[in-house]
Simulated assay, not measured.
Amino acid sequence: MASNNNNELYTGNMSTQGGSNSSINETDNTGFIGINVPLLSNDTIRQIREKRFSMIKPWSDFFDKNRISRPKDFSDITKRVSHNVVYFQANYLVIVLILLVYIMITNLLLLLSVVVIGAGFYYVSKMPANEPVSFFGGRFVADQKKLYIILGILSLILLYLSSGGSALFWIVGVSSTIILIHASFLEPSIESEFAETV
């Protein structure tokens, strides 16, 4: 009787441990090729968005014509750029997003590719991490890691066909030019310099 009780306790502990492990596996989001990358939940995205957009400075301050002047020398340019890039970082992010929306609207193939890639990664992320899934009536079986690899290759092909590389270089080039010109010619305000020192 004692041995039976011990066996029941042992099996009970094993089942509870297995249950805890299964619950851990359910909440464990295994990322690309086995690297644990926590997926961004809606709450996390909302918090990041609220925090980032709460840092946006008034656009009247961003486009203040009274503070636009030619920099004296290279050291003055360096001082202005280092200050304005930090102070107006959220405003510059909005400009980059506007350019991103513009390039998507003018290149519908790129927009379609981004939507398909995003939907594919979202679908794969919701699949069980360690359970193979069959496609095409069982003729193709793959787990989450293999699907991430296939999806990554297909994403590169789609972005190449839709001129994603040139679009990326265009966004980086145009946004960098706008930011550098604005940050170089806008004098830091007294309020912004005081806010940085506090």
Rank of each mutant, 00 (worst) to 15 (best):
V94W: 07
S41L: 06
K57F: 00
Y122P: 01
F140D: 04
Y87L: 00
N84P: 03
L39H: 10
V81N: 03
E50G: 03
V101R: 15
R67E: 10
L112F: 15
K65N: 08
F121E: 01
R52W: 09
F62H: 03
P71E: 07
I48C: 05
N84A: 10
K65V: 11
K79W: 01
N42W: 15
L99Q: 05
L99R: 00
T44S: 13
D64N: 13
G120C: 07
I68E: 11
R139P: 00
K145E: 11
G138R: 05
K72T: 14
A90Q: 01
T106S: 09
V96R: 13
F136E: 05
L111F: 15
V141E: 14
D64I: 05
M104G: 08
F140C: 00
K146V: 06
F88V: 02
K145I: 04
A129W: 12
L109G: 13
K79C: 02
F74Q: 11
P128E: 09
N84C: 07
V96D: 06
S75F: 13
Y123S: 11
K57S: 02
V115F: 15
N66A: 12
N91S: 03
A142Y: 01
K51C: 01
L99I: 02
D64L: 06
E50I: 06
G118V: 07
R139E: 13
I77E: 01
L40W: 11
R52F: 09
S41I: 05
H83M: 00
V141F: 06
K145S: 12
I48T: 04
S54E: 11
V86M: 13
A90I: 04
K57C: 01
F74H: 12
I56M: 05
K126M: 11
R67L: 15
K57G: 01
D76G: 06
P38T: 00
M127F: 11
Y148I: 03
R70S: 14
S54N: 11
A90E: 03
D61R: 04
I95L: 14
D61H: 03
L97N: 11
V94S: 08
D73L: 09
V116H: 15
V101E: 14
I149M: 05
V116E: 13
V81G: 01
I48A: 07
R80W: 07
S75R: 14
H83Q: 04
A119W: 10
S75T: 08
K126F: 10
Y123T: 07
N130H: 09
A129R: 13
L110F: 10
P71K: 07
M127I: 12
V86E: 11
S41R: 10
P132Y: 04
K65S: 12
F74R: 13
S60P: 00
P38N: 02
N91W: 02
Y92M: 03
P58E: 04
Y122V: 06
F74E: 12
N91H: 02
L99G: 02
Y92H: 01
